[in-house]
Amino acid sequence: MSIAHRPSDETLAAFAGGRLDEGLALAVAAHVELNSESRRLVHELEAVQGALLDRIEPVAMSTGALDRIEQHPASRHPTEPRVVEPGMPAVLLPYAFGPWRPIGIRIAMRRVEVPGSQARVFMLRAGPGIALPHHKHTGFEWTTILSGAYEHEYGRYAAGDFDEADAEHDHTPRVDPVEGCTCLVAMTGNVLFQGWLGRLLQPLVRL
């Protein structure tokens, strides 16, 4: 099978620090949920922050410890069981979705509403064997494959993989001929399409 594709260390560090744009962070989060190696690395990077916290120069607080806790009893927070749609990562649950909308033959998309994000976030579902249009980016296009697979100039991307494309990449993804592909995409900047399918994708990426 394919080699697992994972985010760069810098991206995971920014993610672990809570420093990514929310839409981009969501694409990373879906991958982290599906990939145990990245999950371990995120936990390690969180531990790095714990170490930073221990080493930092303290800055005196002007408010005291007990100012606020009076109104807040120490309490257990039982977590409610979450209902996850099959094929949908749990990290998407806090967000609202649009309906699945066909944007071509055997291609459909569904917007994920991420208020405050500079990125457009959407799920994309493409039937077996479809070639997505050749395109370049002016910003980021970060993709987590939720099911199925696609392949392009930089390798084969299967369920759980992360495809971290930026302005340096241009590619022509081809969807797996048997399984098709569903993925979560976060996109910033513009996408420069070549070919007829690009026009179909225009409403999707607001060119």
Binding site: G18, A25, V42, A90, P94
Partner: peptide, 14 residues
């Protein structure tokens, strides 16, 4: 907070 971010929930789910 003004953007009504839900990102902290994402981290909690993970």
């Amino acid at each position: 907070r003004e953007a009504r971010s839900r990102l902290s929930q994402v981290y909690e789910i993970l």
